[in-house]
Design a protein around this nucleic acid. Structure first.
Lengths: 188, 188
DNA sequence: CAGTTATTTCAGAAATTACCGAAATTTAGT
DNA sequence: ACTAAATTTCGGTAATTTCTGAAATAACTG
C-alpha cells in the first residue's frame, strides 16, 4: 500500500465532519478543499504535514500548498516544527474562541471595511450638484449601522474568551440593564 | 433613444455605490448582478420594475428575473403595486436595521444551522467505538460556541431597532456590568 | 376567449473558479 | 557549494457558476 503511507485513518464522525465543511465551503466563501483541510486540522490531535493532508483528503500536493497559503492569509494556522524532520506541520489554535475572533477580524477586513470606506468617501466629498439626496441618506444610514456594529465588534475583540462567553450568556437580560439606563438618562 | 425608455439616470455617487456592491457581491456570496440590483433598489427613492432594473444595469430581463427570485428567497424585497399598471415594482425596507436583521436571519439559516445540526448529530449518537475522542471534543467546543452566538443573536432579533442601537452603543461599557455581576455571583 | 403584456423557465454560451501535474524555487544537511 | 528533500509557482484543463435569448407560462384587457 504505497499510497497510504501518509494518509490518516478517519472514523465515520470525522469523515462526516470533513465532508460537511467541504460542502459548506462554497457558502462560506472558501472552496471545498480548503474547507476540508481546515476541518481535518481542527479535529486532528496531531499536527499534520502537507503530504498528510494531501493523501488523507485525496488532493494534489500543489492544491494543498495553495490551501495552506490561503489559510495562512487568514491567520488560521499554527505551524509546529518537529525536531529531526524537515517537513512543516500544521495545526489550528486550540481555543475555538480565538479561531472565531480571527475569522471575524479577517472577514471584516475583506468584506466590510472596503464597503465602509467606499461609503465614507461618498458621504465626505462635497457631492456634485446632481447627486441624489435620497441616495446619500440611505448610504448614510447603512454606513452608520455598519460602523456601529464594527466598533462594537472591535470592543468585543478586546475581551477575554471567558468574558465574552459570560456576556453572550447574559443574552437579553442585558435588556434589563438597558431598561435601567433608559430610565436614568431619560430626557425631559 | 429606444433603449433608455426605462433606464434610470444615475449620478456618480449612485453609480459608484452600485458598482461597488457588484464587485463585493462575490465576497458576500451573492453574484455581481444581484448585488447591483439590490444596491440600486436601496438608493432608489421610487420602487423599480424589473424592466427598469434590467435597462439601468444593462442586464438581460431573464437575469433580472432570476435575481428577483433570489432576493425574494432572502426576504429582502418589498413589492409595491401601482394602480393602473400591471408591472410589479420593487423596493427594499426603509429601515436598514430591518434589512440587517433579515440578512442575519437568512445567513444563519443557510450557513450556520446546517452545520450546527450536523455537529449535534455527531455528538448525540452514541458514537461508534473507533471514534476519536479528541475530534468529538473539538466538535463539542465548536458546537457550543456557535450555539451560544446563535442563541444570543436570536434574543437580539427580538429587540427594537432603537433598543439594539442603544445596546451596541454601550459597547464595552457592558464590561462594567459584567464586573459587577462577577463580583456578586463569584463562587468562593 | 382572443389578443397583449408581464414574468418565469430553461438549455446552452460565456465567464469564472478550482484543481492538477510539471517545472522551478527554496531549504537544509553534508 | 552540492545534493536531495520539501515546497511553491504556473500553464492549462476541468468543473462550476453566471448570464443570455428563446420559448413557455401566467396575468390581464377588452
Amino acid at each position: 500500500m504505497q499510497d497510504s503511507e501518509n494518509a490518516i485513518e478517519l472514523d465515520d464522525v470525522s469523515q462526516a465532519f470533513i465532508q460537511h465543511f467541504g460542502e459548506m465551503g462554497s457558502r462560506w466563501g472558501i472552496n471545498r478543499t480548503v474547507g476540508q483541510m481546515y476541518a481535518l486540522l481542527v479535529i486532528s490531535e496531531q499536527p499534520l504535514s502537507a503530504d498528510q493532508l494531501a493523501e488523507t483528503l485525496h488532493l494534489s500536493r500543489s492544491n494543498v500548498s495553495m490551501g495552506i497559503k490561503e489559510l495562512n492569509a487568514w491567520n488560521l494556522l499554527r505551524t509546529v516544527p518537529r525536531s529531526g524532520d524537515r517537513k512543516t506541520y500544521f495545526t489550528t489554535p486550540e481555543d475555538v474562541w480565538e479561531i472565531a475572533r480571527t475569522l471575524i477580524a479577517e472577514k471584516r477586513k475583506r468584506e466590510i471595511d472596503p464597503t465602509l470606506s467606499m461609503m465614507r468617501n461618498a458621504l465626505m466629498g462635497e457631492s456634485a450638484p446632481g447627486t441624489s439626496q435620497y441616495a446619500l441618506s440611505r448610504i448614510r444610514d447603512m454606513h452608520d449601522l455598519i460602523e456601529l456594529l464594527v466598533d462594537w465588534s472591535d470592543e468585543m475583540q478586546t475581551l477575554q474568551s471567558t468574558r465574552l462567553k459570560q456576556l453572550f450568556k447574559l443574552g437579553s437580560s442585558v435588556n434589563k440593564v438597558l431598561d435601567l439606563t433608559d430610565k436614568v438618562t431619560r430626557k425631559k
